[in-house]
Amino acid sequence: MQRVNMIMAESPGLITICLLGYLLSAECTVFLDHENANKILNRPKRYNSGKLEEFVQGNLERECMEEKCSFEEAREVFENTERTTEFWKQYVDGDQCESNPCLNGGSCKDDINSYECWCPFGFEGKNCELDVTCNIKNGRCEQFCKNSADNKVVCSCTEGYRLAENQKSCEPAVPFPCGRVSVSQTSKLTRAETVFPDVDYVNSTEAETILDNITQSTQSFNDFTRVVGGEDAKPGQFPWQVVLNGKVDAFCGGSIVNEKWIVTAAHCVETGVKITVVAGEHNIEETEHTEQKRNVIRIIPHHNYNAAINKYNHDIALLELDEPLVLNSYVTPICIADKEYTNIFLKFGSGYVSGWGRVFHKGRSALVLQYLRVPLVDRATCLRSTKFTIYNNMFCAGFHEGGRDSCQGDSGGPHVTEVEGTSFLTGIISWGEECAMKGKYGIYTKVSRYVNWIKEKTKLT
């Protein structure tokens, strides 16, 4: 034993070699072989497995989906700052455009905790909710729209109204504003409101030439003092309507412009014939205590009207009353817009006519005020429907199939267009061939041609 100890002390290297040989010859039971080890760690190889990531292109799944990435790591994937920024906006807080917040056709661009709407022409605001041009839906104005110097929408209202708090709607500024039905039992019968379409306001006024200088022999019209197929109006439903009495009662109609003036057809009036105007009328054979009678003290036909040349060209006249009318729910003026808007309103496509005229061709006159909704007829169809001249200051309205029309005794009465609950004068009943005849239409004086003249002559002093 002493000898062994001496050998170990003198030859430590020998001992180490012996131990190493023993270990190498022993069977290893701690580690699995290569094949079995792979069965336990069965993990798919990654895209760049075996390579240094710093030297390969980034992978979106590896960089940002398996674990949260930084902007720089995302930049490695896209290799483009702009594309990385677009991805980053949604990656950080989701897609803010998912709810489609942009209105009126706006395009949404996502941002971090926010979004941006790219608005089409005519709109602005956070969600493109603000109209900035009158060309689109009248700028959301209830009545009139004008573009300011910086191309912003400025709404306005006709006389007797003021802008509401929203700067879009119009509200009454006087007790009985024009064009409004205020009798409670008839307010439910107000005709369907007309909503502004998209309009090209630059070209809204037709490029028409008034044929002022045409000389033409007097034409022989049949029954051209021209509501057939209409309905009984309720008291106060058309408070701007008046009836004219002269040699015979209810020979023509008219509309209240203001307390002192009536507008009617020029062919209705004769110099030297006494005319009485009755406002607030409903049943011409009954006294309903809503009527107001006034005498006409002055007749002003349009300066281009000449019955000797043509009885229905420039067929418009103004009547001055001896005493002002007292405005109330049964006696209310009709609204008159400017030339541009009167023309736009007419193009809405349908209007209402009213009167006490004959209820059928050569038949009896109506006792109760009649009204009828009539569609506008395109000019080409209008011209083809008659052998008589249709001037540019006239328009056609009615039904091709016949059966409904204005008729004798309705002449001078109103053709009105309702705009968001307020009625505007767009025409004056003038003439036609018979009444409600198939293929024939009622012919009306186009008020847009005469609004400046009306307003100039009827100013209240």
Rank of each mutant, 00 (worst) to 15 (best):
N80H: 08
R379A: 08
N59Q: 10
K234P: 06
Q216W: 10
G412R: 03
C97H: 01
A337I: 01
K126H: 10
P375L: 08
G106D: 00
G125P: 01
A250R: 08
W431D: 10
E159G: 07
S385W: 12
I112H: 10
D249L: 08
G442P: 04
S448Y: 03
T271G: 09
Q143P: 00
P239W: 01
P197Q: 09
Y371R: 14
C134M: 02
G349P: 04
Q219M: 12
I7P: 11
I344W: 07
K247R: 11
S184E: 11
V77W: 06
V263I: 09
I17P: 03
F196R: 08
S385K: 12
S255D: 01
T389P: 14
C145D: 00
G105Q: 05
A207F: 08
L327N: 00
S406H: 12
C145S: 02
V326S: 11
T389R: 15
V296R: 02
G409W: 07
N38H: 10
L319D: 01
I40P: 15
F348Y: 13
T264M: 02
G50Q: 15
E98L: 10
L130A: 07
T422H: 03
K168Q: 10
S220W: 06
D223Y: 06
S255Q: 02
I262P: 01
A192V: 10
T417S: 09
N80A: 11
G254D: 00
D110Y: 04
K109D: 04
E320D: 01
G413S: 15
I214N: 09
C28S: 13
S255I: 08
Q2N: 11
E72K: 15
E320S: 02
I429F: 14
F31M: 15
L346Q: 08
K247Q: 11
E434H: 14
A307N: 09
E193R: 07
T158R: 01
W453T: 01
T194E: 12
T209A: 11
I210H: 09
D410N: 10
L327D: 01
S99N: 07
G412I: 14
E288W: 05
I297K: 11
D198W: 12
A207R: 06
S220A: 08
T287E: 14
D93A: 04
E418C: 07
E288N: 06
T276N: 10
S184L: 13
V374M: 11
P324L: 03
C117T: 01
N36W: 06
K455T: 08
C117Q: 01
C97I: 01
F345C: 02
A265G: 04
C157I: 00
Q237P: 08
C97Y: 00
T225K: 11
D111L: 10
E418P: 12
R3A: 12
E420L: 12
M394K: 03
E98R: 09
N59P: 08
I214L: 09
S11M: 13
V353F: 03
F55E: 13
P197M: 11
K274H: 10
V30C: 05
V243C: 05
C97M: 01
S70P: 05
E208T: 13
I390H: 12
V56W: 03
P239S: 02
T225A: 09
E86V: 15
N452Q: 13
F78C: 05
D223P: 12
T389Y: 10
E323H: 11
